[in-house]
């Protein structure tokens, strides 16, 4: 580990100011500290935000939630409002990591965690994300956990979060404090960038910007499901995961919101798929059509080819479950 300066932020503004000057924000540290030990990340300065007053979950006037960036994954999953109104989020959180990690990991940190690509973590291997221009060792390497959608010839890494997949389904917004522009709000979907030629730039956050809250709109009608497929029953990242919020009215799909984990460089969502489903009668054939569209541009990289049929089967099962009976 490289020597670094450490200071504790007195208020969010100070944190943003330090970040603007190049400091790296540390909250739970469940990912950053590992990366620093391996010198995959080697910040000169850390600004610790753990003592800021951003640990609260507030109900908003329109019936939604405003979640402080420091709310731990455990606390968010256990919150009664979340469990009742946004159960897909609670389930996604509980399917991630381990109890110990969830106690430390924070909401903002979860959104900004780095990929688990093996080659990203090994500083002797080329990685465009860690060292732009050095190449991508995952291409042509062992890439079981890698992405099938949204990749580029520079990077095939996935975003590993479960929580973010559920939030994407729920149309969450991210509240950002900027050192220069004050507070701004973006859709969670707009937080992430696809790798393209710049896989080292993962988000649209600018230097000096800090996530302070995540906003959930009011609860959705219908049934919510989080299904995670993985190599062992706990403490494993998703090979494929689906967060679904589906409402059926009079035997037809009124709304279908779907986000996918384990398959793309960010929590993946494809509005065309949802449009295709909306207004239709549930059927195996419909799921086929929807998956065909979702997977139109999917590319396997060898060890992860199985994700394509796996996603197809899992989506059909999730949609069956979401639309079974009267939709309740």
């Amino acid at each position: 580990m490289r020597t670094f300066e450490y200071s504790r932020a007195a208020d969010p503004g100070e944190a943003a100011r330090f970040a603007h000057e190049g400091a790296t924000i540390i909250a739970g540290g469940t990912n950053l500290l590992d990366l620093m030990k391996l010198e995959v990340m080697a910040p000169d300065r850390l600004i610790d935000i753990n003592r800021l007053d951003l640990k609260w979950i507030e109900s908003t006037q329109d019936g939604g939630l405003r979640i402080g960036t420091l709310v731990s994954n455990s606390d968010l999953a256990a919150d009664m409002r979340v469990r009742e109104g946004w159960p897909v989020l609670s389930k996604a959180l509980l399917s991630g990591a381990t109890g110990q990690l969830r106690n430390k990991a924070t909401t903002g940190g979860n959104l900004l965690q780095r990929t688990r690509c093996y080659y990203f973590y090994d500083t002797d291997m080329p990685c465009n994300k860690r060292e732009p221009g050095s190449g991508c060792a995952a291409l042509g390497g062992f890439n079981r956990i890698h992405a099938i959608l949204g990749t580029s010839d520079q990077c095939i890494a996935t975003h590993p979060s479960d929580m973010a997949v559920a939030m994407r389904t729920l149309d969450a917004k991210v509240e950002i404090l900027s050192n220069e522009e004050g507070v701004r709000m973006i859709d969670l979907g707009d937080l992430y960038r696809l790798p393209g030629d710049t896989p080292h730039i993962e988000t649209t956050l600018k230097p000096g910007e800090m996530i302070t809250h995540v906003i959930l709109p009011p609860p959705l009608e219908g049934r919510q499901i989080y299904r995670k497929v993985r190599d062992r029953a706990s403490y494993a990242f998703a090979l494929v995961s689906i967060a679904a919020a589906v409402d059926v009215q009079d035997g037809k799909i009124a709304t279908a919101k779907l986000a996918f984990g384990g398959v793309g460089p960010c929590p993946w969502r494809m509005p065309q798929v949802e449009n295709l489903l909306t207004g239709q009668t549930p059927s195996a054939h419909l799921w086929e059509k929807a998956t065909d569209l979702l997977l139109e541009d999917a590319t396997g990289q060898g060890s992860n080819d199985f994700k394509i049929p796996l996603l197809r089967r899992t989506l059909a099962a999730v949609m069956d479950e979401a639309t079974r009976g009267d939709g309740k």
Binding site: T98, R116, R232, A233, S234, Y235
Partner: peptide, 10 residues
């Protein structure tokens, strides 16, 4: 994290 020994849940 990536060499998967069985965990309690397994």
């Amino acid at each position: 994290a990536e060499y998967h020994l069985p965990v309690n849940a397994d």
